[in-house]
Write a protein that binds this DNA or RNA. Structure first.
Lengths: 220, 220
DNA sequence: GGGCGCATTTGATTCAGGACAAACGGCTGG
DNA sequence: CCAGCCGTTTGTCCTGAATCAAATGCGCCC
């Protein structure tokens, strides 16, 4: 992997990874093209990553190609650290994405030394909590409830913007929710028809939530 | 909660919780009747638990009663520790179950002080890994694949016994796999008809796996 | 030991979501 | 500016699993 050195590429954007690591940890940045793989399932986990811009998806595949996306990582999110020594899933770029990279072990060391709230246990626990909620969604919610939950999750993570610009396409949403892309599309159309959302711009990726209350009711 | 003191109830059965805690942590035992609640979602998480005998299920509910079981905890398993200060899900006894109980914070303190492989991060990470695999199952596997995966998981956790005695009923299996109990029953019957398993004893809870190879093939 | 109740199986039917197919529309590159 | 290419929507049909409904069979309690 080509990793440019810190000195050459340091940007003005800072975040937990840089803040936490401070001067003690060498920190590089890297840019992934749309669809580029960050790491693959089974590979040794040498680095920790933080999204600067863009979006990363982490997922598992079945042998026949069926895919389950665990989570989407948006700017500020740290990922790749929750794995042990080997990655338990793959990660790639949903769109052109900038990532801050640091050596895993050095970051873990720093985290161990500290007793801050930004520690390793909390990071893994947050991932676990997300997974628990997602299991409930995957196992027990209907298509409409899943899509409503997805919209509210993204809305919250993007800090309730007026216009929500989704970096991922229908296929990605489907593989996150355990649906087909057609079912996702139909659910979105249905929510539009019910005036709970509206599409903005030319592409169908810019969504305006018109009624968060009713969306939340749908999401049991 | 009624917790008998260590001195009065100490048994011969030892395990990670007692071993790890040693003399520094007060350790009690408690018995739950079939169906009894150990803790509920949202309650403060004061204790950590280890199953001595029986089985515990942890689960989340939707408002209309739909249930998703996160995991089954069998003898030796520690649970309740992966939550933060408040429990993120409920736990109750699948059958009559003995549990070793200790105060959460004292156990966490002991774990922090140690640098063993039995530490908190690994415990939470194992839970996360299980959840990741389970999301793939819930989102992307068929009913037959789910049931085959369930049987193989239980087989492994019970150390490949000749006769596997399942503590949970069809409803519990269904709520773990995101299916209905009828579908689970049909899948099991189908696997029996295909000579991949056989029921033993009178109840249909004692299963003998006849062809682990073909079961594993089914489980993509 | 007999009868009741619960768990499980099995059968018939329905239905939510999947699969296949076609049309549309915006973006891209020649 | 046009053509081809995606990504998305929409339509139709199909199917796997859910739902509804019995029947069976075992354990337990009286």
């Amino acid at each position: 992997m080509l990793v440019r050195t810190n000195a050459l590429t340091r940007r003005s954007i800072d975040g937990p990874l840089a803040t936490l690591a401070g001067d003690q940890v060498a920190c590089s940045e890297f840019r992934y093209r749309r669809g580029a793989e960050v790491f693959g399932e089974g590979e040794p986990a040498e680095y920790a990553y933080q999204v600067i811009s863009g979006a990363i998806r982490t997922y598992k595949l079945l042998s026949d190609g069926r895919r389950q996306i665990n989570s989407f990582h948006l700017p500020g999110d740290i990922f790749g650290l929750e794995n042990g020594r080997a990655h338990r899933f793959s990660a790639d770029a949903v769109v052109e994405t900038e990532v801050r990279i640091t050596r895993r072990h050095s970051l873990v060391d720093v985290m161990k030394r500290r007793e801050t709230e930004t520690n390793l246990v909390d990071l893994v626990t947050r991932n676990l909590q997300h997974a628990e909620n997602h299991m409930l969604l995957l196992g027990r919610k209907t298509a409409l409830e899943k899509v409503a939950a997805f919209l509210l999750e993204m809305d919250e993570r993007l800090a309730h913007p007026n216009v929500m610009v989704l970096p991922m396409g229908r296929r990605d949403i489907a593989d996150y929710l355990g649906l087909t892309l057609e079912t996702v599309s139909r659910a979105l159309s249905s929510l539009r028809d019910e005036h709970m959302l509206r599409f903005d711009g030319q592409t169908q990726r810019e969504v305006v939530l018109l009624d968060r209350i009713r969306l939340a009711e749908l999401d049991s």
